[in-house]
Each structure stands twice: as C-alpha cells, then as structure tokens.
Write a protein that binds this DNA or RNA. Structure first.
Length: 571
RNA sequence: GCGGCUGUAGCUCAGCGGAUUAGAGCAUCGGUCUUCGGAACCGAGGGUCGGGGGUUCGAAUCCCUCCAGCCGCACCA
C-alpha cells in the first residue's frame, strides 16, 4: 500500500508533468494544511506565465477526487487537505496491518552495515557507544522494511600491538590472563602490557619478535592470539547484551580476516596501473585529495616496510562485501574524524571498479560524546570511561527513580524494568540529535521522565496500553473514524506519516528523524486523550477512540523497536 | 596553509531539493480539569537563525566572504 504522501506526490507529479514535462513538485507536511506542494513558481517561470495562473491550473488539473482538497495558498505553492472519508479508509486499513502501512522493499536489498568495531584486549568506551547504537538502529530499520542486513563488526584484532599483548599474556600466565580478560578488566590488561612495553627494552624486543611470529603464522603464537580474541569477543557480547544490541559473535569479522586478500588488493591495483611508489611505499593517489603542502595525498596501501596499512584492509573488506556478500548498500558507521580516509578508500574502490555506481556506499559519520566540561568524556584520572560503567550507573539511577515513583513491583521485575528504562534513556539520547554533532553525556537529562527522552516515550506507550487493557476485549476492526475533534484528526495525520518517516530516516541514515517523529506522535496522543475521554465514551465514538489508541500504541512500539528501545506494558 | 564539520530562545536541540507568523523539550510565569496512570493539557514571555554581502517576488535553508570552536592533512589503526 502506497502511503498517503506517496499517493499525493504521484498525482501531483502527473499534474505538473501535464503542464511542463519533467516538472517536479515538492511535497511536504505543513502546519497550515495537511500538505503543501511547492514548485508552481518554477513552473510558471519555465512557462513564462504568472504564478497564480499556474497554481490555479494545478488545482484544476490535479486529480485528487475522493482523496483531498487542493487550494491556491500563495504565489508558488498550493495547500492540500485530505478528505475525511479518505483518512477514515486509510486508518481502517492500518488497523488490519501489522506493519502500519510500511511497505516491504521488493526485491529486498542487501545492506552491509559496518558498526561497533571495538579493539581486542581494549576496553569499550563511549566512542563505541555511538557506532554501536546508531548502527544497530539502522540495522533494525533496514530489517523492518524487508531488506537483508549483514552486520559486520570490524574488530581491531591485528597489527603491531599484538606482539606486546601476547607477551604480556605470557608474563601474566595464561590462566591469570584469561581470568583478567573474562571478568572484563580489559583496561588493566592493556595498560599492563603498555607499561611493560614502555619500561622494558627486553619486553619491547620480545614484542617485536612476537609480531613477526604472529604474521608468519607460527602455530603457538596464533593459539595465544586466539585466546585474546575469543576472550575479548565474549566480553563484547556481554556488553551488547547489556545494551540489547543485535550484534552476535558471527558478525565479528575482524581485520585479520582479510589478511589473505591483501596481496591480491595490491596486485590488482598494480595491474590496473593505479599503484604508484612514493617514498618506498605503494600508494594510490585518488584525484582531489591534497596534503598540507598542496601535493597529492596518497592512500598508502603497502608501507615502506612491506607491511599493509589499514587502507589495504578496508579495500579488501569492501571488495568482499560487494563481490561475495552481494551488497547493494554499504554503510560505515564510523566516527567523523575518518571522513577523509573513507572518502579516499571509496574513491580508490570506484576507480578500481570494485564499487559499481549502482552500489550505495556511505560513511555514516558521527560526532563525539562529551563530558560535562564539553570536552571528550574522561574519568577524573584522565582515562576514557568504560561503557559498562556508564550503563550500570544509568540502571542504578533508573531503579532509584522507579522506587521514588513508587513502582509497585517485585525487586527482580523492577530491576529488569530499570534496565529497559536505562537503555531507552542512553540510546534515545544518542540517537535523538543529528549524528554528526557532538553531544554531552548527561544522565540526569537522559533519564528525565518528561520531555524529549526515551523514558517519556516508554511512558506514553505504557499509559495508552493501560487504557486499552482496561477496555478489555474489543473488536477494533469495525471501527469507523469520524475524527470530529481536531486533536483526533491531528493524531490520525501523525499515524499516517509513519511509513514516510521510516523511509526518510533510512534515506538519510538519520535515526534522529524517527526520534523526533515519535516524540511528536506521543505529544499528539497526550493532546488527544486530554480532549477525548476514551473509556467514558460509548458506542462508535468509544470504538473510534480505542482504535486510535491502539494504532498509536502499535506505532510507538514499532518505532521504538526501530531505535532498539523496548516498550514495556507497564512502568 | 588546505580541507571537513559545527554555530538557531537562558539551557539542550529540531527545522529533510527556499514558501504563509522560525518550532520542540527543559527552565520561568499564568491558566484548565473533582486526573480513562498529572510523568497531563492550554497559553504567555523569551530569537540580530555567528557577522557581512549576494541570488530570489520570498533565504535559518542556495552562493561568496569573514569570525569562533572542533577534527583531519604519508606509512598506528
């Protein structure tokens, strides 16, 4: 089923097209009408006629019989107001639709989403929060519209630090090292290794030798390395569970997975004539990238010491995703500082023919999480903050808030609810502002149960669910929608917007649009049941109101699920 | 130096190919309803949309320029 928006857009395009082939209207929701269509001014110019005349002609020719009323509103635009019957029909259709009007993409597209990407034997910190939460929301939404999602957790499991980490593991003894890693004390482990490396020349030498052994495939070294990887991945899984994120160990495809493909990347670039030697390194110079001296900037594929840089790994991963996974879309949920690097990787991949124009490839960049001082979030001692400790603190505070509000629950149930609320608070705060901006991590603000927060949305849902529970078993399918009260009509318009919001959110890879929509919907809901008592009403009016409540509850729940946020029945 | 991102109400932020009076949340003030869960609703005050130019009938939005903050600019990923 096409959304009301799509239907209007199509009819309008027909009308514009009749006046001037190829003319394209802009349609958007408006405060002054249900929708506003712009573009008559441009059309008038192209035709050499007056804007008003053209607008009148649009009104006369657009075929919205039985759908909407169109009227001239200003020099370059027209207002569109949906007919009550049409609205009512639409709502009735939604009642029978689990997806609330959301169309399934056919045929499904394969969307590869690269997100989270923590480092082995290194603590997850708030920087990983953003990639993980944003990536997971996009993954959930892509699945919701019927696309096939391949999550790739590009874990940092290779490179020179592993010489040092393996030697440290041996110094501690395997059992103790595993014990340290398995309780999630990755900071202590990593810093222990770092300290030994900085202090002890002998350790440094052993580390260097160990890197060589690792890279040459020495069996015992590989075994030790695997311990580090497995312990870390197990720990990451615990964090993902605590965050309620859909990533699994199967999604972990670390940097090392591409080792065997790196030679091929270099050889193929060479064969394509793209490879240039510069200062002993093998480079590609994609056009348009300049260094600080105004000279072309290289993407270093192979270093002077014959080692491969991360550009080679990224290129190998990209090839794999297009050639073997059959990606139609590649999304890289990676921090904003990597813009130039990724732009260069994409440019080289396009040049090499590894990334066809038909494949959408996007760096889903995001800004930093800041502390109250508006600088990068750090502990008092200057270390980065452990992600789990932030989550644990959020849960404690949510629990305290529930107790304070007199939550009538067993302890275990209350603790579980607190975890739901805490996740909602943290995730919503992360998702609700435009990705590329930095934001301040402030638990007080996030956990407020009023205003623009995750818990508020959960509350709105729980409250409307409570009304529906009290109403008992009712057959809503027979509801009809008169929408006599303005607040009911506003709510209905909000419900109809759902599919378009999802589409727009995915198009821009911008979950904050969905956040804004859900908040707006919750506000329309409040206004509605303030003005329209549900359970006190009788007959068809009661049925209509119950149906609106039901649709809103389902939209909130489904929308929150797309953000990775649970919608509890009670709270 | 070059490039990128950010700059909108006291605070936190929306504003998605230009369009009617620039919106929301928090905070402040006032009001409503003998509360279908008040974690409510309605309203008011509060804005040189960083500054300045330009394009346009019309600019927070497009172009140029300047200012401020952050980030990146060859072998660590």
């Amino acid at each position: 089923m096409a959304s009301a928006y799509e239907l209007l857009a199509e009819r309008l395009r027909d009308s514009f097209d009749r006046l001037a082939p190829g003319a394209d209207p802009v349609l958007r929701p408006s405060e002054h009408a249900d929708f506003q269509a712009n573009g008559a001014m441009a059309l008038a110019k192209a035709l050499g006629r007056s804007a008003r005349e053209v607008a009148l002609e649009i009104v006369a020719t657009v075929d919205l019989e039985g759908v909407a009323r169109v009227e001239v509103a200003g020099p370059g635009f027209v207002n569109i107001t949906l007919d009550a019957d049409f609205l009512s029909q639409r709502l009735s259709a939604l009642l029978l639709d689990d997806r609330l009007g959301l169309a399934v993409v056919t045929p499904p597209r394969t969307v590869v989403i690269d997100y989270s990407a923590p480092n082995v034997a290194k603590e997850m910190h708030v920087g990983h929060l953003r990639s993980t939460v944003i990536g997971d929301s996009l993954a959930r939404l892509e699945r919701l519209v019927g696309n096939r999602v391949v999550a790739r957790n590009h874990v940092g499991d290779w490179g020179t630090p592993f010489g040092m980490l393996i030697e440290h593991l041996l110094d501690l003894g395997e059992d103790r090292a595993i014990a340290e890693l398995s309780i999630g004390d990755l900071n202590a482990f990593y810093q222990g290794a770092r300290a030994a490396f900085d202090a002890d020349e002998g350790f440094r030498e052993r580390s260097r030798a160990r890197v060589v052994a690792l890279q040459s495939g020495d069996a015992e070294t590989r075994r030790l390395w695997r311990i580090l990887v497995e312990q870390s991945v197990a720990y990451f899984s615990e964090v993902y569970a605590k965050l309620d994120v859909t990533l699994t160990p199967e999604d972990v495809v670390g940097e090392s997975s591409y080792n065997d493909a790196l030679e091929g990347v270099v050889a193929d670039l060479e064969a394509l004539g793209l490879l240039v030697e510069s200062d002993g390194a093998q480079c590609v110079f994609p056009p348009g990238f300049i260094n600080r001296d105004g000279e072309p900037l290289p993407l270093i594929v192979r270093k002077r010491d014959e080692g491969f840089g991360y550009a080679a790994t990224d290129l190998a991963a990209l090839r794999d995703r297009v050639e073997h996974l059959g990606a139609d879309e590649l999304l890289y949920v990676v921090g904003a500082p990597q813009v130039q690097h990724l732009a260069m990787v994409f440019a080289v991949a396009r040049e090499a023919g590894w990334l066809p124009d038909s494949v959408r490839c996007e760096h889903v960049a995001f800004g930093n999480v800041l502390g109250p001082d508006r600088k990068m979030l750090k502990t008092r001692s200057g270390e980065s903050v452990k992600l789990v400790s932030l989550l644990d603190e959020a849960i404690e505070r949510a629990d305290a808030a529930l107790i304070e509000r007199g939550a009538d629950l067993e302890t275990a149930a209350r603790r579980e609810l607190a975890a739901h609320v805490a996740r909602a608070a943290v995730k919503y705060a992360d998702l609700a502002t435009e990705r590329v901006r930095d934001y301040v991590f402030d638990l007080d603000r996030m956990l407020a149960f009023e205003g623009d927060t995750g818990p508020y949305l959960q509350y709105a849902h729980a409250r409307v669910r409570s009304i529906l529970r009290r109403a008992g078993e009712v057959d809503l399918a027979t509801a009809t929608f008169a929408l006599e009260d303005l607040s009911a009509r506003d709510l209905a318009m909000g419900l109809l917007a759902w599919p378009d919001v999802v589409a727009s959110t995915l198009e821009a890879a911008a979950p904050h649009r969905l956040c804004a929509y859900l908040l707006d919907l919750a506000q329309r809901l409040s206004a509605f049941y303030d003005a329209c008592p549900v359970l006190k009403a009788q007959g068809p009016v009661r049925l209509e109101r119950l149906a609106l409540c039901d649709l809103t509850a389902r939209t909130l729940r489904l929308g929150l699920s797309g953000l990775g946020i649970e919608a509890p029945e009670r709270m």
